[in-house]
Amino acid sequence: MSGVIVRSMSKSNLIYLGVAAILLILPFILTGRSIQFMITQIFIFAIFAMSYDLLLGYTGIISFGHAMFFGIGSYTTAIFMDRFDASFGALLIAILVAVLFAAIVSFIVGILTLRLKSHFYAMLTLAFAGLFLVAAEKWRTLTKGNDGFTFKVPEFLRDSTTIYIVSLVCLVLIFFGLRRMTQSPFGRVLVAIRENEERTVSLGYKVLHYKVMVSVVSGVVASFAGVLYMLSLRFVNTSVFHTDVTIDVLLMTIIGGVGTLVGPILGAALIELAHHWISGLADVHWIFERWIILYGTVYILVVIFFPLGIVGTIRSKLSGGSKRKSPSKKKAG
């Protein structure tokens, strides 16, 4: 039995590595800057969405302020690159600070609310993200307010192919890292919390520790995605803290399939492509400037009718439409 699992896993690993290898060659075929940039964005948002999936998909925690961690990573990088010389050393320090900062914030938010009902985490993250947005708008000496600013990045990262490859490598590493984590005993406890928190408590697990830990990991990964985002964009403004970013990542995770890790990657690709396509349509009709309506509607429909997402639905079909329930199903209270 375990042999079968190992073999099937290494088979899926092979598929993933194969896809990664194809993606690695891709920039040498598609040499256009804009297409490379777009795929890089997909990689970055895929990392971001996977961090969200850890919370929503694996543990059943809803965050409405995930943009906050993305923004923390973004602003830390931008400010460091702007204030200090754009050297590799400064970048490393920026990454370290971004990760630490995100860890501290997610720890505080987690320790405050994760022992309470799920609404509290959703509310508090929404409120915290609002606070960060206001801070970024008001603290003009540091953030230059709403307009944002451009900055330089280390010399070797300026090439669009390099940043593409760096993002891809990060995506692959983080994907396998998180997959390892979710398949470890730690990850199993997370799933147990999602399925039935009371039972997990009575089995003797310190549920709060697990929840706080996963929220810290998630915050750190999201912050790192923000760092990469800045390296590819080289411009920051307050939009990184907007609720739109959170809704984007929610949509990526849910459409792709919660609790799958592959799903969010697929979701990121779909949403990014849709963004690209819709922003092209804005010239056709003004309604496309209000793309959130479309997204919001799709999102609502997906939550109602398609809660497993693409990957989740395929998997449950493959396993013979078993009795597997919606992973977001949780007992009231």
Partner: peptide
């Protein structure tokens, strides 16, 4: 109503509706 009894879906869906309402105002 469609997601009655499922907490996580309720929380998710109401935020989505919030954004739709907000954008519809602009339209």
């Amino acid at each position: 109503k469609p997601v009655y009894g499922n907490h996580i879906q309720q929380i998710l869906i109401t935020l989505g509706f919030m954004l739709v309402l907000q954008e519809l105002i602009k339209v």
